[in-house]
């Protein structure tokens, strides 16, 4: 799953989260997750002032480096003092697994 600005959305992408009006979780639902985006739909979202959406996989390569690598490096930095403690090690591994899963895994190369 990756959050990208609407301007970089293309018509083949699949929504990973519901879209709500006004980007608010209490707003009126506009589009379900799992929907495959089309040009018409993207135009309609633009008209509704939706700024960013969550899409499946990791379709947009962020500048410089793979974003998953950056996230993992930051995670290592946060755990630098405590990764040897057994309980923190569990938490570290849980988070690492979560990041890899949620960001497409395989260093961003999504298997189709």
């Amino acid at each position: 799953m990756q959050k990208i600005p609407l301007s970089s959305v293309t018509s083949d992408m699949i929504l990973a989260r519901d879209i709500f009006r006004g980007n608010m979780p209490v707003g009126m639902p506009v589009c379900n997750k799992g929907t495959q985006l089309t040009d018409d739909l993207i135009k309609r979202l633009e008209n509704l002032d939706i700024l960013s959406v969550y899409v499946e996989g990791c379709p947009v390569q962020e500048e410089g480096n793979n974003s998953l690598d950056i996230h993992l490096r930051e995670l290592d930095g946060r755990f630098i003092k405590t990764f040897r403690e057994p309980l923190n090690a569990i938490l570290y591994n849980t988070y690492k697994a979560y990041l890899i899963r949620s960001m497409g895994g395989n260093s961003g190369r999504q298997t189709e």
């Binding site: 930095g77 946060r78 630098i80 003092k81 405590t82 309980l87 938490l91």
Partner: peptide, 19 residues
Amino acid sequence: VLIKASGFGNSGDNFVPPI
């Protein structure tokens, strides 16, 4: 601890305290 681990916000230092 969980919020420190997720790196959300900042409460001073950036280190996850021991559980």
